[in-house]
């Protein structure tokens, strides 16, 4: 039995004439301890998908099963790291994390809870900033807090919705490594949503593209058979890596073009930017 399972899940928004089906017939299985990445275009329904798994949204059709049971709402067992950090601006780092710990460990003594908060903040090297408000932190630091908040509840599974998309390349690289290091400790089941194929390959065991919406479905999956720990610099020279990467990119470009031609057939598509950038290709071939 899969740890998490989506069966024929569909989700629409709006009513009447404005109703659009964002996700259509999604089937997905993730095993315990597996790290899965979903790559897709902006606006294709990635956040919707993760909200369905976290329990923030309910599917119109089909089922979301977690450990064999239907997901009926959010739970501490599935920690969520939001796309835009979603820290509470009026609480400092300690209280942002503390609020989560307090809810997840109601019976714990206040002292133990404080200790837990401090340990988790220490884990992402934010101890010096523990008294600061989110507005006083850089984007990378904010996302670290968000990661800590999700992990401090000790969830069985972590759901990450483009956690690093808003960061600059350098910070992004560092945080990828940090998240991987933390994940390596107890190898919890993880689902990462990303728009960066490289990020997916670096972090995940399996990569699944989400086709552009409306009526987005999942594409063919790509196994990442690269040994861990993976080193970003070394990967660039790895033939398997290049092959895998090019394969996924080609697929994405192909479905991107399909979407572009669909546009002529009277489909109103969301205003979205494709994440397919040509430079990475060149970078690789010139290496």
């Amino acid at each position: 039995m899969a740890y998490i399972e989506l069966r024929n899940v569909s989700k629409s928004f709006g009513t009447g004439k404005d109703r659009t089906q964002v996700l259509s017939n999604i089937n997905l299985e993730i095993e315990e301890g597996e790290f899965v990445a979903i790559v897709g275009f902006t606006g294709s329904g990635k956040t919707t998908l993760i909200n369905l798994i976290s329990g923030l949204l309910m599917p119109d059709e089909g089922q979301v099963l977690f450990k064999g049971e239907r997901v009926t709402g959010p739970s501490h067992e599935r920690g969520v790291i939001f796309q835009n950090y979603s820290l509470l601006p009026w609480l400092n780092v300690r209280n942002n994390v503390g609020m989560a710990v307090k809810e997840a460990f109601r019976k714990m003594s206040k002292k133990d809870r404080n200790k837990r908060v401090e340990d988790y903040v220490e884990m992402v090297n934010l101890s010096p900033a523990i008294g600061k408000l989110p507005k006083e932190l850089s984007g990378g630091m904010r996302q670290r807090v968000s990661v800590t908040r999700a992990l401090s509840m000790s969830p069985d599974m972590i759901l990450m919705d483009e956690p690093l998309s808003a960061l600059d390349a350098l910070t992004r690289g560092n945080l990828q490594q940090e998240i991987l290091n933390i994940w390596n400790k107890d190898k919890k089941t993880a689902l990462l949503i990303t728009n960066d194929v490289d990020e997916g390959i670096l972090m995940a065991d399996r990569i699944i593209p989400l086709k552009p919406g409306p009526k987005a479905t999942l594409g063919p999956e790509y196994k990442v058979n690269l040994a861990r720990p993976r080193d970003k610099a070394a990967l660039n020279h790895n033939e398997d890596y290049k092959l895998l990467r090019n394969g996924i990119m080609e697929y994405l470009i192909q479905i991107g073009e399909q979407r572009a031609s669909k546009k002529d057939s009277n489909h109103v598509l969301p205003d979205i930017k494709p994440i397919v950038k040509i430079p990475p290709f060149r970078r690789i071939s010139f290496n």
């Binding site: 329990g55 959010p74 969520v80 509470l88 609020m99």
Partner: peptide, 20 residues
């Protein structure tokens, strides 16, 4: 976003009103 945070943290009604 804040409401979603309250939901995924499973905040109780009191916490939700006073903290968020």
């Amino acid at each position: 976003d804040y409401i979603n945070v309250a939901k995924v943290l499973n905040l109780g009604v009191g916490q939700k009103v006073f903290k968020i």
